[in-house]
Design a protein around this nucleic acid. Structure first.
Lengths: 174, 174
DNA sequence: TACAATTAAATTGTGCACAATATAAATTGA
DNA sequence: TCAATTTATATTGTGCACAATTTAATTGTA
């Protein structure tokens, strides 16, 4: 059984699926969580962009590098599928992205000897070195931004809870 | 002067831009608001996808339709640039998207008579009719999701505040 | 051992996002 | 008046996302 998210309020099962607000309100763009999420995500990405450009990385490439930088050096290099699980991305997205990182000599892709189907992704020395340039990114991102760090943390946690609920839920019936 | 967002806590200017947590923590994927936002946004979009597929719409197309459905019929049809402002998208994104909606006969793009540069986007009867099918989407999306509506609202408002801060802030120095 | 089923990654095709540039219309100013 | 500038949209090119399919390797099983 999947763990309950903190978004749940005990005894309450979301909204009763029969009650409905006026359609005008339900379909108003600014009432939608989905649009707030969509717009905020792109605004955050846009704010990262110039900083990551200095590193020669796109935003999704940066996320991949974050995973690799966090990897224990003693562990075997992660598989493409493991990166995918972590980032919620499939091979259709990751394969070309990883090829670009390999062209830039930041990573090395190696087909496994034990199992010829898997590809393991390891940092090159250059990829590891890039981390030194990246450490200043989170801080520089926040600099000049008029936000309360505590609220950032709580927003992050609420988003994680939402993600957990969404991933645990049955897919919407088609 | 731009209005202050509620994310701000009086007298507090984000984090002092010199203090720094250990780099291990700063760069940890799961500590990043940006990843929570990125993953949650895609998870929400994925949950919309099967419902929107019934309408023959992609998620960004749905957002455009939300704006058009909300338009006052007595007002002149919105310009491409006005849709862009509302959705934070530029013509490079909107032009092909609107062409696809026009191919589906949901909208009509008309070059302005007063000013030949502007293109106005109006619903066709079919586009207006699609709204009837769309009204059930928000509700069906939430159904079976184990979330507290009040938390959705507060999350939405926090995201709006974040968006406001980001849009008001100076761009990050490159 | 054969061979169907499964698994991992790659490929293909569509549709965003967005930077950079182009085109064409409107406006401004000498 | 008309060249220069500005404005609105379109175009081009790159890089995601993701569905659907393909390829190749492995596993399970008769």
């Amino acid at each position: 059984m999947r763990r309950r998210s903190s978004l749940r309020i005990s005894g309450m099962t979301s909204k009763s699926c029969s009650d409905s607000a006026p359609a005008d309100q339900l379909l108003a763009l600014d009432n939608q969580l989905c649009f707030a999420l969509y717009a905020a995500n792109r605004a955050v990405t846009a704010r990262y962009r110039p900083l990551l450009k200095e590193l020669g990385l796109t935003y999704p490439q940066y996320l991949v590098m974050l995973v690799l930088w966090q990897q224990d050096q003693n562990e075997p290099a992660p598989k493409v599928s493991e990166l995918g699980q972590r980032l919620r991305l499939d091979s259709g997205t990751l394969t070309p992205l990883l090829k670009r990182l390999e062209e830039r000599a930041l990573i090395k892709r190696t087909r496994g000897a034990e199992d010829e189907r898997v590809v393991r992704v390891a940092l090159t020395p250059a990829g590891r070195a890039l981390r030194e340039l990246a450490v200043s990114v989170p801080e520089r991102l926040m600099c000049g931004l008029d936000v309360d760090p505590a609220q950032i943390v709580s927003l992050r946690d609420e988003l994680r809870s939402l993600l957990e609920v969404l991933e645990g839920a049955e897919p919407t019936a088609q």
